[in-house]
Every structure is written in C-alpha cells, then in structure tokens.
Design a protein around this nucleic acid. Structure first.
Length: 592
RNA sequence: GGGGACGUAGUUCAGCUUGGUUAGAACGUCGGCCUGUCACGCCGAAGGUCGCGAGUUCGAUCCUCGUCGUCCCCGCCA
C-alpha cells in the first residue's frame, strides 16, 4: 500500500553514509534497479548524489511488499524509513553507502517511467545518437551528472577567482551587428527592420575592448559564442568562452594571473599541483620543432632539420626542394626499424594528408648507419652520422624524412610525431602547459591574394616589427599568445592595438580601405578615438577545459544539450522549418 | 564542398566474405519460483519495416545505385 501524501526529502542518498544507524530519513529519486528475492526486495534508489539500497522487508513492513515488487526502472519515488547497518556479509565496499541500507516504512510513487531506450547503468553505453535524443535520461546517469557538476564547480571557481582579482562581470549583447573577417555569422532577421539582420557574437571581442575604453579596467564574462562553421569532435557551432580583458597592464601580468587561475582550477577540481610559471615557446619554435602551434609536450621526439646534411648530396628531388626555398626535416621513430611495410605506409598516408609529396623512411642499422631510401647510398658516412646524431637516434630507430615547404613539412611531421607518440604510448600522464608566443600577425591567403589577420584585426604587432607592416607584412610578429595543454589549445589572446594610426595601417595591409573600415567597424574605430588605454585580453574555451578536467575526448559529453556534426539538436530537432507567416513577419523569403 | 566508417530485436552486437528453409547471442522486458541481493539466481515466453527507396536476380539483411541519419578527417573555423 502506498502513501499518497508526498513526503519531503530529508537527505540525499550519499548523505546516508554519514548518518547514524537508527535515524529515520526520507530520500527520493529514481529506481535504478530492483532485486526481488521473493519476499525480500532490494531497490537501488538513485539521486544525483549516488545510490542508496532500500530494503522492503516482509516481516517489518509486509504492506509495502506488493508495491515494492512492482517498482520498475526509473520509477520516481519518495521513501521514508530507518537507516540500518547492513549485516557484515552484505556490506558492499564498492558503494559509498555500502555499509548501510534504508529499511522502507513509507513509500510514495510519484510517477512511473516508460522503459528507457538507452542503457542507464552498467553494460556498454548506448550509441550517441540515442543518448542525445533522450538526453534527459542520459544526463540522469551518474557519469553524466558528474561532468555537469564539474562544469558548474569550475565555473564557480572562475567567478570567485576573477572577483578576487578585481575583475567585474559585464554581460554583452547576443544580438550584434555582423562584421566581416573571421567565421561565418549566425544571423537573426529583424522584424522591425525588414531586410536587416542581427548577428550572434563569434566572440564579444570589440565589445570587451570598448569596455576598456569605458574604463571598466578589468572585465570578465563566461559567455556563449556562435560560429556558423562545420563542427568537429572538439568544435560545436555554439560554445562557451571565459572571456577576459584588462587595461594598463602587460602581457606578463596577464600570464601570471591566468597561471594562478589554471592552478586553482586544477588544484580544486583534480587535486593536481601545477608548476608555475608555465613553459613558453615562440610560434616559430613550436612549428619547427613540434610541427604544430599547439605542441603536445607529454613526449619529446623533436623534429630536426637535416637540410644542410642533405644539400648537394645528389638526391635530386631533395635538392629541388632546397633550391626552391623548402626544407628537409625528420622525426625519429624509436625502434621503428621493426615496422612492417604497411605500418610505414600508414605513416606516409598521414604525411600526405597534410600535403607532403611523400615520406622517406630510413632505418638506423646496427653499425649506426642509415639503411633504406635514397639517403644511405648517396650520403657520405660523415653526413649519415651527423643526421643520426642530430636525431639522437640509436640502432633500430626509424627516421621519417619529409621534404617540402616549411609549413607543409611542419604539419606533416607534426602529425607523424603525434602518431608515433600514440602508437608507442610515449605520452606521460601529466599536464604539460605551454604558452605559445610571438604568433605571426598576418597570414597570406593565396586564393584571395591577400593577407588576413591570424588572430584578429585588432591584435598589436610587436613595437619593433611595426615597420614590417609596410616592408614585409608576412614577417611581422604579433603580441598574441595561446595557452596550450597536452596538444589542446585551451585559450588565446593578444595585446590590442590602442593607437588609431596603427589600426589604420593594419586595415590597409588587410586590404580594408578607410571607407570600408568606416562602414564595417566605424563604431569601434570611433570608440578607440576617445582615449583608449593600452589593454590586452584572453579567452579560454570552457568546453575544452572541462573535457580535459573530466577526461573525455568528446566535446558533446561536456555540453548538456549539444548538437550533432550536422548542427542538429536530436532532442528538439532544431533547426526546424519556418511557416510562411513566421517568414512574412521578418520579411524573409527562402529560395526554392 | 571532398574523403572514410557505420546503420540488423528495447539496448550492445554477430550474420553479409561465397545471395537460398525458421536472421542468432547477450543484456533488458514479460510470466513463474526464490528471505541478504547488489552483473542476484533458476525455469519459461514474447520481441525484427535487417534505416528508407530503386535496381540486378528465380530469389537480396547480403551485390549495385540513390537517399536519410550518425561518427571521424580535409577544406572551413581560433
């Protein structure tokens, strides 16, 4: 017999472990599992804190037995009873509440559940499409609640930290003006201004700089950003940034503050002690030695340049590469001599995917000389030894050599390096933080025959490099930086331009003439002309940070209601078609 | 825009290589038994648009093409 009167919860399940046997408590939640021994019924009651075993005992409370034997999965109930120590032989050391159990005395069934279409506990996880469609059930699982909770805890640390450091949170609009450059905008048609649209922010970049003009001095915000670009395993169209900007201060101070923030988060969430200060590396070094602007420093295997050793040795395709300004570089595969032809071929496929013409694999034999490829026959013994020495190679190693343009070789060997690290389990179980600094200011886009801003158009060049804007823009370094952790870009930022002349020069290099600049950024340029303090900022990807904290490689896991690769919400089926009436209101007409 | 993988019971998968009687397993579900289980146990049962459409064939879960969905990558994106 069930009590129809709703009983107010007195404790969460996990608290039962701390209470005294004999206490009368009321708990509530969902039935995760029922074990009916015929007469004696055990129910695993789940709430967000964990599981508590509820016992329906035919001797003490025979009137509850009928109801208990019908408690199906995910039935919602409140139960009052007496907390008891379990018999010694029935203690479950695998459970937080494994020493105790609740002897049910009153039971209220609030709602029953249809049979869950996803695996709620144990066994293999259901496929992600189903989990996303029934996200409310998926989130009810212990693993998922833990992630959401970690995300909350992290956000709370962030709020407190910035408050203590004198930052204030300012919220910025989600309905913004569309600006060119950068990613495609999500647009929102305006009812009051048919033919015009708002754009959702790709980031509050200009607004936070304007807040510096406004004298806010230290700003932060945990903010949603939107980019209408194709998704990836670590990229959603809608994501969350920890967004920061600060005035009258240097990059050094910004680094120091954020090293403290990261240390605090890793300490409080994971109990991990970060070594401060973090390592630093210039972009050039990162590219040339690790083949990436976000090097994974959990293992070594640096890329080495062997252009000098190979030059003039009569290897025609390599000489051609060198004559046209290319480079020849290699990465060492420890013990790679034992690889099969196929395994080496797979490495070449990886290199080719990044645009390399090919990959030359050379073994280091027991005489400490090269074997295979064109190198062993044409290179002098001295040069072979020099190459082996440069790579720190030992007999049995394999040298993976790629020739080509600097960036192609870097990316190809960078990916080969990561593959070697993965295959040979070289990655240490640590957190390797790294500031990558001195990014190029500009990037040449051959298709459009022009430069674009690598970071964004408001990034300040190094003072010493400003003359390069006119002479050799591609060589101009930016006061921009990324924080990298284990090969993941956690965040990035820059010192901003605060002198209007430099900003104009920047626009000129970007091919944005004064009229166009006025039309597209007029409000921003005007703001900058009213006394802009020197300022700098940074933004962290909160989602990626949580991924690392909870140890998942799937961004969707850390977002309560994420979208698929096709940018569809499986639960709500967004986006959805609009009715003609809805379109008429905003003066919109779709093609075909 | 391009490349790759996948789609079979409520769920996770096998079967497809080499087309052929009734498409299997485990878990779950339902019924029966069971008083210390916690992956409860034992006995029994139900459960299938083989994603969808077309083609080839005497015959298609299997082969071909298209289509829809999902994942991963390149382009794109900081």
């Amino acid at each position: 017999m069930t009590d129809t009167k709703l009983l107010e919860r007195s404790h969460y399940n996990a608290q039962a472990a701390e209470l005294n046997p004999g206490d009368t408590i009321t708990v509530a939640g969902w039935v995760r599992k029922r074990r009916d021994l015929g007469g004696l019924v055990f129910v695993d009651l789940y709430d967000r804190t964990g599981i508590l075993q509820v016992v329906f005992d035919p001797i003490r409370n025979p009137d509850l037995l009928d109801a208990a034997s019908q408690l199906n999965r995910e039935t919602v109930l409140t139960v009052r009873g007496t907390l008891s120590l379990r018999p010694a032989e029935a203690v479950n050391p695998g459970m937080i509440t494994g020493n105790v159990e609740l002897i049910a005395e009153k039971l209220t069934i609030h709602a029953v559940s249809k049979l869950p279409p996803i695996q709620m506990t144990g066994g293999p996880e259901s496929n992600e499409e189903l989990r996303l469609r029934y996200r409310y059930l998926d989130l009810r699982r212990t693993e998922m609640y833990r992630i959401i909770k970690t995300r909350h805890d992290t956000a709370q640390i962030v709020y407190t930290f910035y408050k203590d450091e004198g930052f204030i949170e300012v919220t910025t609009p989600q309905l913004l003006r569309s600006t060119p450059e950068g990613a495609r905008d999500f647009i929102v048609p305006s009812r009051l201004h048919p033919g015009s649209c708002y754009a959702l922010p790709q980031s509050p970049q200009m607004l936070k700089q304007i807040l510096m003009v406004a004298g806010v001095d230290r700003y932060f915000q945990i903010v949603k950003c939107f980019r209408d670009e194709d998704s990836r395993a670590d990229r959603q169209p809608e994501f969350t940034q920890i967004d920061v900007e600060m005035s009258f201060t240097s990059m050094e101070t910004l680094f120091a503050i954020h090293e403290r923030l990261i240390r605090k988060i890793f300490k409080e969430i994971l109990g991990h002690d970060c070594l401060l200060p973090f390592r630093r590396m210039t972009w050039d070094t990162a590219i040339d030695r690790y083949g990436s602007d976000k090097p994974d420093l959990r293992f070594e295997l640096e890329i080495t340049d062997i252009s000098d050793q190979v030059r003039g040795a009569g290897i025609s395709f390599m000489d051609n590469v060198l004559e046209t300004g290319g480079v020849i570089r290699m990465v060492r595969y420890p013990g790679g001599s034992k690889l099969s032809r196929k395994q080496i071929g797979d490495l070449e496929v990886i290199a080719k995917k990044r645009g390399a013409q090919g990959l030359v694999a050379v073994k280091v034999n027991e005489n400490n000389l090269l074997t295979g490829g064109p190198l062993d026959k044409l290179l002098s013994l001295d040069k072979q030894k020099a190459i082996i020495h440069a790579a720190d190679a030992v007999p049995g190693d394999l040298l993976c050599v790629v020739a080509g343009k600097r960036m192609v070789v870097a990316e190809a060997l960078g990916d080969v390096r990561l593959e070697i690290g993965k295959r040979e389990s070289l990655k240490r179980h640590t957190f390797e933080f790294l500031w990558v600094t001195e990014f190029p200011l500009l990037e040449f886009v051959p298709d459009e025959n022009r430069f674009t801003a690598m970071h964004h158009p408001f990034t300040a060049p190094f003072q010493d490099d400003i003359h390069l804007l006119a002479d050799d823009p591609g060589k101009c370094r930016a006061q921009a930086y990324d924080l990298v952790l284990n090969g993941v870009e956690l965040g990035g930022g820059s010192v901003r331009i605060h002198q209007p002349e430099v900003q104009s020069q920047m626009f000129e290099v970007l091919g944005i003439n004064p009229e166009k600049a006025q039309e597209q950024f007029g409000f921003f340029l005007e703001a900058l002309s009213y006394g802009t303090p020197p300022h700098c900022g940074i933004a962290f990807g909160l989602d990626r940070l949580i991924m690392i904290l909870v140890g998942t490689d799937n961004l969707r896991d850390v977002i309560a209601f994420p979208k698929t690769l096709q940018a569809v919400c499986q639960m709500t089926q967004a986006p959805s078609p609009m009715t003609q009436d809805q379109l008429d209101i905003v003066g919109l007409k779709f093609k075909s």
